[in-house]
Design a protein around this nucleic acid. Structure first.
Lengths: 163, 163
DNA sequence: GGAAATAAGTCAACATGGCTGACGTAAAAT
DNA sequence: ATTTTACGTCAGCCATGTTGACTTATTTCC
């Protein structure tokens, strides 16, 4: 590997800590997504499908607008993957009862199974990291991650007491 | 928002913790990349360019092979963004002295400035999260993130003592 | 010294998943 | 009755990943 310390870029401690934070996020996300991506490729789907299946599993009967708010992509982008998933019967749509313009999304049995098999690799990775790190480290992890996430979405992560 | 607790998906505690871990990573990465992405879009570059500029800044005189190992993409994919960056003089190449087949990559002054302005938003986000969380939470964060990262790359993150 | 391996680059073609813009329909809200 | 909202769709563009095939220069190995 090229020498970190040499060259016109002497890193100081504080700066180094922040860089390390950036890189922890880069490497963790890279490795975290690699396994499900490989599984998805085998069945002709992509990471975008995984995200949709994941959040529909997480929030059964979620609306399209809510899903768009989470994913932060355009409805045209969502449409593409969502139609795939509906056509292939991973996801079912039904009209809302209160508001009949809505299409409430739920996983089919097939969808539940797909979601489980995809996220299992990720759950295993998290579980192993949590186990190795211990409860107080996990609490620190949670706290820092919440600080990185935009304030609007922090409410999605209720404190331990509320769970 | 759709009701988490209702429906055919009763979540239990342990399962819920793991899901929360998955989502912390999703939201953190989403928000972490949003600002630099917006800046990049204004100058006609993309996230891939940021990654290259970042790691060339991190490891001055890094070789193409080393960079490929970090990014875990094909050399054809890297080639595209790297040529952009060399053409636009963000990155300079020079042959290795020990091995003249290598093209050692370094940031130009212009590249240093780009890297700084892009990563500043990210550094600020990390710094704020670290400050709010406190030192022991940061240590926990580090530990859990390292557990998520594949073992091969953990050596890139020397323990505090070695820094 | 000659063969094989390695570092890097290139061309071509393709897939995925973002984006914008324009437009349509049904239902709800004002 | 009008406007707004939820959702969908068509068309086209761009960024960034992929595979496969092939070249050149240099180093390493026998």
């Amino acid at each position: 590997m090229a020498d970190v310390k040499s060259g016109p870029n002497p890193l100081f401690l504080r700066e180094e800590d922040l860089r390390q934070g950036i890189e922890l996020l880069f490497y963790a996300y890279r490795d975290f997504t690699a396994e499900p991506d490989a599984m998805l490729a085998r069945i002709g789907l992509g990471r975008a499908h995984h995200r949709v299946v994941y959040f529909v599993g997480r929030y059964p009967s979620i609306t399209v607008t809510e899903l768009l708010g989470i994913l932060q992509i355009t409805k045209q982008s969502l449409s593409r993957v969502l139609s795939d998933l509906v056509e292939q019967e991973y996801i079912a749509q039904r009209p809302g009862t209160k508001d009949r313009r809505q299409r409430l999304l739920t996983l089919t049995d097939k969808g539940v199974e797909l979601e489980r098999s995809l996220s299992d690799a990720q759950r295993a990775r998290i579980a192993q990291a949590y186990r190795a790190a211990g409860a107080s480290a996990v609490e620190g992890f949670r706290t820092v991650m919440l600080g990185i996430i935009d304030a609007e979405d922090r409410a999605k992560f209720p404190p331990p007491g509320k769970r």
